[in-house]
Design a protein around this nucleic acid. Structure first.
Lengths: 195, 195
DNA sequence: GTCGGAGGTTAGTGACCACTCACAACAGTG
DNA sequence: CACTGTTGTGAGTGGTCACTAACCTCCGAC
């Protein structure tokens, strides 16, 4: 809009943004990078290039690589909470869990970045900062499921257990390239609140 | 046995081994390294140092870093299968699952390297070689549980779902530093075949 | 007693890493 | 127009990375 060129994006020599906008954009591409390569494998050089800024500015915006990674983890868990809040809005009991389960299934199918980022988060829990962020985020999600559904511990736990099984089944590609034993696992699982 | 020195290990200036022994030792320390730092974060320099050999020899033994990582993944899944075979030996039905569940709980408590290596494996499934190895290994474990227990799909799936929930609960430190919501999750879970 | 092969090392290679510092460009305000 | 703060970059820093080529060292066999 502000540029003289017709193509809005890359060809323009400079298009300034507010720092908040840049931070947001960097966070997005960083989640993409870290989800694909993990914390150690992720490169601030590549993140900067994908965000269209210099590497130095990434450090000005986030201070250090660990801080950027932590921001990505926190955002990832916030997104999950928002997804669950939206899906369960106005519902209660097992219908709430069912709606959340559907939303989660759709996320796994359509948002591989956030799905993979979750796995990276679990694997990075050895780092105390990461573990703390994961605990906080996951705790909020569990409490939301408890409050919205009002179901007893056993059913809520069952819901999350099925979700975790679904995670590894998906990670191993058992939905896209099935195996007999994988199909039996999926068949035997309760299906995210649909029991 | 072949050495002249009494201390079998570190203090001797040189103690030659067979290549097979070296490969085994490298595999052990590599699992330690990769479990702590992930694939990208793991360093062949540190692995070599921990194994007491030069970095060059690591490459002579395993060819490349991806091949070494893959060997670690395969070994990790073999160890899991062996653990489950031993635990369930001579048992059937739900008693078999209960015994396997106990063995798994003990492994999580006493062998953090193999536990953490599992999480790294799931997070590394985007790499096709790793995914294939994880599928093969996990499939064997599932089939063993099915055959030894003879239970229907739903109960076997429930067992593995609880195991996966236990994994993330442990990764987040909810057993060592509990939270109310974490305690409710653990309480509501069926407890690895003990339902 | 030498010789071949298995078991190992030294000393690099260029590439990439996170991170820093000095400085440039621009926008709004007076 | 000058001034000021924000947005941004160029050009490095030392360090580590995976990986390699060439060489050394020992032991058993003949």
């Amino acid at each position: 809009m502000l540029d003289d060129s017709e193509t809005p994006d890359t060809s323009a020599p400079h298009s300034r943004s507010t720092a908040a906008e840049r931070r947001e954009r960097v966070l997005e591409v960083a989640m993409h990078e870290f989800s694909e390569r993990g914390y150690e494998g992720g490169s601030t050089q590549r993140i900067a290039a994908a965000a269209g800024i210099s590497q130095a500015y990434v450090f000005q915006l986030y201070g250090s690589k660990p801080r950027l990674f932590l921001a990505v983890i926190e955002r990832c868990m916030e997104d999950m909470l928002t997804l669950f809040e939206t899906a369960s809005s106005g519902r209660g009991g097992s219908a709430a869990l069912r709606a959340v389960g559907d939303a989660y299934l759709e996320m796994i199918a359509n948002d591989p970045v956030r799905f993979q980022m979750q796995l990276v988060g679990y694997a990075s829990c050895a780092q105390p900062d990461v573990r703390a962020a994961m605990r906080t985020g996951f705790g909020r999600v569990v409490e939301l499921a408890e409050q919205r559904s009002g179901l007893p511990n056993a059913e809520v736990a069952r819901f999350f257990a099925d979700g975790m099984l679904l995670n590894v089944v998906t990670a191993m590609g058992l939905t896209s390239e099935p195996t007999p034993w994988g199909a039996r696992l999926i068949d035997g699982s309760i299906g995210l609140g649909r029991g």
